[in-house]
Design a binder for these strands. Structure first.
Length: 794
DNA sequence: GCACCTCGAGTTCC
DNA sequence: CTCGAGGTGC
């Protein structure tokens, strides 16, 4: 191996260890081993100066002062604060009790005053001001000796080069250099645009910037600073408390984080901890946790230090948001639509406050992009949201003999071919309802709360009902008897090896079965929109189902509606319309619907078609939706002038008795001459396709039926709500999300899932998330539940 | 034709 | 909650 190759290898290894250490807090190797590799690289670079490069780990992080930077001795050592990971109440109480014990206070004494603040995720820094002028900035280093990074720190705009109203000979300000999340995103965007390496997280980016040898590069890295403590002080009158010092800092022009408080006793600390936990994700920068400090300096002094940690302060870390774990298996799941989704089974790991054992890998491309393999060590994140995500594979920890993931070519459940449409990301099982997995999912969907709302039908039982063939189609649910359910349960238990049941268990089983039957019976009169949603038609979710129900009004119409009619409805284009028409055209599905009706399921709320539909039912509009190539809206209108009715169009070009079938018949289209010949050709070609004439006649009949059924005029009741778009976020005090939605929709309002400029109101409850932020950013009015109620009543 | 806005679908954990 | 894809308005 040449020195160059070895240097490259060492750099890569060290970078990985750095990442594990600084980013993940889970060192991959012991420190001694790291040091050995680091020194080897240093020696190599010293021996071969041509191998030096600015991106070498020797120029960056390393925990020890690097020779390139001058060393700075801290006259007052930079201490680390004892960090505890216990969450919430217990930690704060334990700290308070410890402090009281040390101070020999008893219950009757007044609560101790604490300063509570954030623990920033950045780099500790000491700023030395002499006579109010910044003369030196140093990193923590090992606490006694740090690196002189004055040149780089001077480029941070929020750090004053001169303090206001301070002329003390020495005032050392301790604080944290960090990078805001938005600045971090912008920086990475720029790095990407310039083809440079991107950073893993804001802390890494900040660390890199501070240790940049070239201050002009450091200057381009958007860093920020918060002051939180004192170092050496000469000639500056010390305030009585830590809180007063921070206030004084702010007056001097130093940035001090506003998220801090002075509070009494353990209860105050707990309240702060909870308040910050709730807003952690919405802070503009990353934090590790919170810090509690005894506020009064005299008490701090009395408490003193244990080894090198102050007894008067403690940090409480929030659970790590990124952790390492291993991939035990990669399995695939079959969804309701047959989508085959790879899922990583992980060694359980506690991350972001919960134990994660599974993480979706989304699709084939995603697995390939990240190259996740069984046996790999991976970084798992639970960022801001709830859903765990595999961020990346730790390449160096890959065992030998791993093999890249391959998508199965056959469905693991039904052995049907797995197909992936060109241009689509998902692979699908082609088995349809013949696939047991899809049948199970279809039934679960049907029974779901927003659909038919059948309680007591969990996945375990649905799987068994399908496995033992009690339920093949959803309609079979309505034929189930108490005896069926009990027998099914007995067989399921038997198969699972569950011991013979006691009398009590038998009673519980009977109760479950009875409740389920009641719930099934209660589901027989669903609102039409829910019924449509429950059918599980592709591309038809809750809101499209509602559009169909609102506009066409009855199942009888909807199931006969041809594509051009469906496309006349709002938010329905060719893809969705075809999916709906195809669904009902499939005999299997049509039968299933008939069986449901026969079983006594009656969609409710059926009504005549909406009068607003009438303008959409002109032949000009409908022609435009036939899907004929080259027939633009304008041409469709011209076509309607020449052939004003669909029946007439259907009749065009039909071979007449005695015609030579091979000669082109003369049509009114060609005679009229308004339409360009290529368009006429396309229309004729379309007409010759099987089924189109019949479809046109059906469309004409249905159109006539709709127009006849429409009520003459309707008075739309105008309220403060009607026509307005609402977005709900957070938990409302008295209304559930569904209740609020129903109330708004009952008055003609619309409830949407995402905030945009078009949103009229955002109704925010407690623990509102990103939607509230977006509303504020866009200037959308934000109201609370009581204001919503006022609007509903006005 | 492009940009923006919605909706559908899939997923996890409690 | 996020991504991708469908729909629509400019």
């Amino acid at each position: 191996m040449t020195p160059a190759e070895r240097a490259k290898e060492l750099r890569e290894t060290l970078e990985h260890h750095n990442h594990a250490y600084y980013v993940l807090d889970t060192p991959a190797v012991p420190d001694a081993e790291y040091d050995r590799l680091f020194r080897e690289l240093q020696a190599l670079e010293a021996e071969h100066p041509e191998l030096q490069s600015p991106d070498s780990p020797t120029r960056r992080v390393g925990g020890k002062p690097l020779p390139e930077f001058g060393q700075v001795a801290h006259r007052v050592p930079m201490l680390s604060i004892r960090t505890e990971t216990d969450t919430e109440a217990s930690g704060a109480q334990a700290f308070d009790a410890r402090v009281r014990r040390e101070l020999e206070l008893t219950e009757v004494d007044a609560p101790i005053e604490y300063a509570a603040e954030l623990k920033f995720d950045g780099l500790a820094m000491s700023l030395r001001y002499e006579h109010g002028v910044l003369v030196q900035a140093a990193t923590r280093g090992d606490g006694s000796v740090g690196e002189d990074v004055t040149q780089n720190i001077r480029t941070i705009r929020s750090i004053p080069l001169r303090l206001q109203g301070v002329d003390a000979p020495v005032l050392e300000v301790r604080g944290e250099v960090y990078m805001r999340r938005d600045d971090f995103d912008k920086l990475n965007e720029r790095q990407r645009a310039e083809g440079e390496k991107t950073f893993v997280n804001p802390r890494n980016a900040a660390a890199g910037a501070v240790r940049q040898l070239d201050p002009t590069i450091a200057a381009r890295r958007p860093l920020s600073f918060f002051a939180y403590g004192l170092g050496e002080v000469q000639g500056w009158p010390l305030p009585a408390t830590h809180g007063d010092t921070l206030a004084a800092f702010a007056v001097m022009g130093l940035p001090v984080c506003a998220d801090r408080t002075v509070t009494q006793g353990a209860d105050g600390l707990i309240a702060f901890h909870q308040a910050i936990a709730a807003k952690r994700d919405s802070l503009p920068f990353d934090i590790d946790g919170v810090v509690y400090k005894v506020n009064r300096y005299d008490l701090q002094q009395r408490l003193g230090f244990v080894t090198r940690e102050p007894r008067w302060a403690v940090a409480h870390k929030y659970p790590a948001q990124e952790m390492l774990t291993t991939v035990e298996a990669i399995e695939v799941q079959v969804g309701r639509t047959g989508a085959i989704t790879p899922v990583a089974r992980l060694t359980p790991v506690f991350v972001g406050g919960v134990t994660v054992t599974n993480a979706t890998l989304h699709n084939e491309d995603e697995v390939r992009r990240k190259d996740v393999r069984v046996g790999d060590t991976v970084i798992v994140r639970r960022a801001g949201d709830v859903i765990p995500e595999v961020v990346a594979v730790v390449a160096e920890r890959r065992p030998a003999d791993t093999r890249p993931f391959v998508m199965p070519s056959r469905c693991p459940v039904c052995d049907s071919h797995v197909v992936r449409e060109p241009g689509e990301a998902v692979a699908r099982c082609s088995g349809g309802l013949a696939c047991r997995a899809q049948r199970v999912q279809a039934i679960l969907h049907f029974a779901g709360r927003r659909m038919m709302d059948i309680e007591g039908l969990g996945d375990r039982y649905v799987e068994r009902l399908v496995e033992f063939d009690y339920v093949v189609r959803v309609a079979d649910l309505y034929r189930l008897t108490l005896a069926d359910l009990l027998e099914m349960k007995r067989r399921a238990d038997e198969k699972d090896g569950i011991t013979p049941e006691t009398v009590k268990q038998g009673q519980i089983a009977t109760l479950w079965a009875e409740n389920l039957l009641t719930s099934i019976a209660a589901s027989k009169t669903p609102p039409l929109a829910r019924f449509l949603f429950a059918l599980g038609i592709r591309h038809v979710g809750e809101s499209t189902a509602k559009v169909l129900a609102d506009w066409l009004g009855s199942l009888a119409i909807i199931r006969r509606a041809p594509v051009p009619l469906l496309m006349a409805l709002p938010d329905i284009g060719a893809t969705v319309a075809e999916a709906i028409a195809d669904f009902f055209a499939e005999p299997h599905n049509s039968e299933a619907v008939d069986q449901l009706l026969a079983a006594g399921v009656i969609p409710t709320g059926e009504h005549p078609p909406a009068p607003a539909l009438a303008p959409q039912l002109t032949w000009a509009t409908l022609y435009g939706h036939l899907g004929i190539a080259k027939l633009t809206d304008i041409r469709a209108r011209q076509l309607a002038e020449i052939v004003p009715e669909g029946e007439a169009l259907a009749a065009i070009g039909l071979p007449q008795a005695g015609d030579d079938l091979f000669s082109t018949p003369t049509t009114p289209l060609e005679q009229a001459g308004t339409l360009p010949a290529p368009v006429v050709e396309e229309v004729l070609r379309w007409l010759e396709q099987p089924g189109q004439r019949k479809m046109l006649l059906n469309l004409a009949a249905l159109r006539a039926e709709l127009l006849a059924a429409m009520p003459a005029g309707t008075e739309a009741r105008e309220t403060a709500i009607s026509g307005k778009t609402f977005v709900l976020t957070g938990t409302l005090p008295s209304l559930s999300r569904d209740e609020a939605k129903d109330l708004i929709e009952a008055q003609g309002g619309k409830v949407s899932g995402s905030v945009s400029k078009k949103t009229h109101y955002v109704v925010a409850g407690s623990e509102a998330g990103s939607k509230l932020e977006k509303a504020l950013a866009l200037g959308v009015s934000v109201i609370d539940e009581s204001q919503l109620k006022a609007l509903l009543e006005s």
